[in-house]
Computed example of a mutant assay.
Amino acid sequence: MTDDHVYMTLAEGHDDGDARWAFGTGFEDPLHGVDTTIPGGVDRADLTATCLALGDDALISAQRLAEWTTRAPELEEDVALANIGLDLLGQARLLYTRAGHADGTGRGEDAYAYFRDPAAFRNVRLAELPNGDFAFSVVRLLVLSTWRLAHFQRLTTTADPVLSAIAVKGVKELTYHRQWAADWTLRLGDGTEESHRRTRTALRQVAPYLGELFSAYDVREEVLAILRQVLDAAGLPLPAWQPLPGSGRDGDHTEHLAPLLAELQSVARAHPEGTW
């Protein structure tokens, strides 16, 4: 099976006009014309928690992807990883803004990104792990984008019109992220002996964190089916795993989140009233 076959198979069912759709969804405001009033019957606490969790996943993932700038194995992939990170950063900004509306505080995106301590973040722990080698980052992106896409597809019909609009925009972006990661997983797994070995190692490192993903949203079978499709084509096994105790959704993080946030937040905290 060729990498094009897997790459295109994952794109089936998305009427984007271009199966190898690039970054972003254009320059239109995804919330243009959307009623931002929170509908009656929508639980504000649940909406806030959902927006914060998904926003934190996106922000922390974007920060890790940004660390690949100037370090990726090819210039084209350097640009690709940076742009995937920008897509996720855009999602985080929208989600944080909605959280500030839903929780009644009116806080903006900067307050959530820059002025919360690690224990207040609700991202899954897989997102905060150090990048490792290229194979690890590729496998992590495959897993996270497949999982996030499955959840966003469900959120397109959620009762909150703003979260639904954010999800519609995000589905297009995440479809490409998943395709990019699937393509590289196939190249590495079906490449040299060394690239195959490193990708198998990456899968073993990522696998223990799958349990946390599947406990958060009911997308387990859908996500595993996509992962197995890609891994089977790449000649890679999906390792068995024992879920790790704790959850980033409860503020239980690895030792890697604090230094990541220290770097991310340093300028904003040093100059809290600064504007550029």
Rank of each mutant, 00 (worst) to 15 (best):
R44N: 03
S164D: 05
V139C: 07
G246E: 11
W21C: 01
R204W: 10
G274Q: 14
L163Y: 07
G248I: 01
R249I: 10
D110V: 10
S266E: 12
S164P: 00
E173D: 10
R44H: 09
F134Q: 06
D218L: 11
G132M: 08
H14F: 15
E76R: 15
L236S: 10
P239R: 13
L144H: 04
H101L: 15
R140C: 01
D250W: 09
D87Y: 00
Y176H: 15
T69L: 11
W180T: 03
D160W: 08
P245C: 15
A82K: 06
A207Y: 05
F115A: 06
L47D: 01
E67S: 14
G26N: 11
T70W: 03
V124P: 00
G40L: 07
G274N: 09
L95E: 00
R249N: 07
D250F: 06
D218C: 07
A167E: 00
A58Y: 03
A80I: 10
D232I: 02
R269C: 04
R71I: 10
S137L: 05
I38W: 01
R71S: 13
S247W: 12
G132Q: 10
L236R: 14
W68T: 06
V223T: 14
Y176P: 00
L144C: 04
H196S: 15
L88H: 01
S61K: 09
L141M: 10
A127D: 01
A150Y: 05
L163F: 08
A120F: 03
G251H: 02
A22E: 03
L126R: 05
A53V: 08
V79Y: 04
T50L: 11
M1V: 07
A119H: 14
A62Y: 09
W180C: 01
V162R: 05
D78F: 06
L236N: 14
G106K: 05
D183K: 12
V168P: 00
A150P: 01
A159R: 13
A72E: 12
G191L: 12
L144F: 04
R228Y: 03
A202Q: 13
D56K: 15
T97C: 05
R204Y: 09
R269S: 05
A62R: 09
P30I: 11
D15S: 06
L227P: 00
F115C: 00
T2R: 08
N123E: 04
L264H: 03
S247H: 14
E212Y: 07
T2Q: 03
F136I: 04
W276V: 03
L94A: 09
W184I: 01
Y114K: 02
L52N: 06
Q265G: 01
R116K: 09
A82H: 09
D35M: 02
G211K: 13
E193R: 15
K172W: 08
L86A: 13
I226K: 11
R122W: 00
E222V: 02
V219G: 04
D46K: 06
D218S: 15
Q91N: 08
G40R: 12
A66F: 13
L227H: 02
H151A: 12
A135T: 03
P73W: 09
N123A: 10
P239G: 13
L203M: 15
D35W: 04
V168F: 00
W21N: 06
R198L: 15
A99Y: 01
R71N: 14
F134Y: 15
S215K: 12
